[in-house]
Amino acid sequence: MQIFVKTLTGKTITLEVEPSDTIENVKAKIQDKEGIPPDQQRLIFAGKQLEDGRTLSDYNIQKESTSHLVLR
């Protein structure tokens, strides 16, 4: 499924993911596309910070959901 990640600069990154993917996996995909190390990434969805060990389905992130990327 596709999800979108919006950066603070207003850029939207499109990612191909599975509901069973962990947040860690998603951060690795963002690193592949954008070159941002996962330890600098914070992903926010529905006002919550997403934890590495959880999956997209844990957070009820469905296709075409948009989460926000904040850099630390």
Rank of each mutant, 00 (worst) to 15 (best):
E64Y: 14
L71F: 06
V26C: 03
Q40P: 02
I13K: 00
L69W: 03
S67R: 11
K27L: 05
D39I: 09
V26M: 05
K63N: 14
V17G: 02
M1W: 13
D32T: 10
M1Y: 14
E18H: 14
S67V: 15
G53F: 12
I30Q: 00
K33T: 08
G35K: 06
K48M: 14
Q40G: 06
D52C: 05
I61T: 02
G47V: 02
I3C: 02
K48Y: 09
V17E: 00
F4Q: 08
S20H: 12
I30W: 01
V26W: 01
I36N: 02
L15E: 00
K33Q: 12
Q40K: 11
I23S: 01
V26L: 10
D52V: 05
T14W: 08
S20D: 12
T12I: 15
K27H: 02
R72P: 09
E64H: 14
L43Y: 02
V70P: 02
P19H: 06
L15N: 00
I23F: 02
D58V: 03
T9L: 10
E51F: 06
L71I: 10
I23K: 00
I23V: 10
K33F: 08
G10N: 06
I13Y: 05
L15I: 11
I30A: 01
K29E: 03
N60K: 09
F45Y: 13
V17C: 08
V70A: 06
L43R: 00
E51D: 09
G53Q: 11
G53T: 10
V70C: 10
E24D: 07
V70T: 08
L43V: 04
T22M: 07
T14I: 14
T66A: 10
E64F: 14
R42V: 15
M1I: 11
L56F: 03
H68R: 07
V26Q: 00
I44H: 09
L71Q: 07
L8D: 12
T12L: 13
T7D: 06
Q2W: 12
E34L: 15
K33C: 07
V26S: 00
S65V: 09
Q62D: 14
I36M: 05
N25E: 12
T66F: 10
S57C: 05
F45Q: 03
G10Q: 04
I44F: 15
E51S: 07
V17P: 00
D58Y: 15
K6G: 04
S57N: 09
P38H: 10
E18D: 12
T55C: 06
I13M: 05
L50W: 03
G35N: 07
R54I: 05
A28W: 11
E16W: 14
L71C: 05
D39W: 13
D21I: 05
L56Y: 01
Q2N: 11
L69V: 07
L43N: 00
S57A: 13
S20A: 08
G47I: 02
I30F: 02
F4P: 03
R72F: 14
T22G: 03
K48C: 09
Q40H: 10
V5R: 00
T22H: 04
V5G: 01
G35Q: 05
T9K: 11
G35V: 02
E34Y: 08
D21T: 10
P37F: 05
Q40L: 11
Q49A: 11
A46L: 13
Q62E: 11
G10R: 03
V26F: 03
K6V: 14
Q31M: 12
F4L: 10
L69F: 06
K27D: 00
I44A: 05
L43P: 01
K48L: 11
A28M: 14
F45T: 02
T55V: 06
Q49P: 11
L15H: 00
R72Q: 14
E16P: 04
N25Y: 11
R54A: 08
D52I: 05
T55L: 09
N60T: 04
T55S: 08
R42T: 15
Q62R: 11
G10P: 02
Q62W: 11
I23D: 00
E34F: 09
K27S: 01
K63R: 11
P37Q: 06
D21K: 01
V26Y: 01
L8A: 13
G10S: 03
Q41S: 04
I44Y: 15
L15Q: 00
I61R: 01
V70N: 05
D32A: 14
I3R: 00
Y59F: 04
G47Q: 04
V26D: 00
A46F: 09
Q31N: 09
D32Q: 14
T55N: 05
G47N: 06
G10V: 02
S65C: 08
I36A: 03
K63Y: 10
T9N: 12
N25I: 15
Q2S: 10
H68N: 08
I36Y: 13
Y59Q: 03
R72V: 15
I13S: 01
L71E: 06
L50M: 12
L50N: 01
E64M: 12
D32M: 13
S20R: 08
S20M: 11
N25G: 08
E16L: 13
D52L: 04
D32F: 12
T66L: 10
V5C: 03
S65P: 13
K6N: 07
T66G: 10
T14E: 09
E16G: 05
E51A: 07
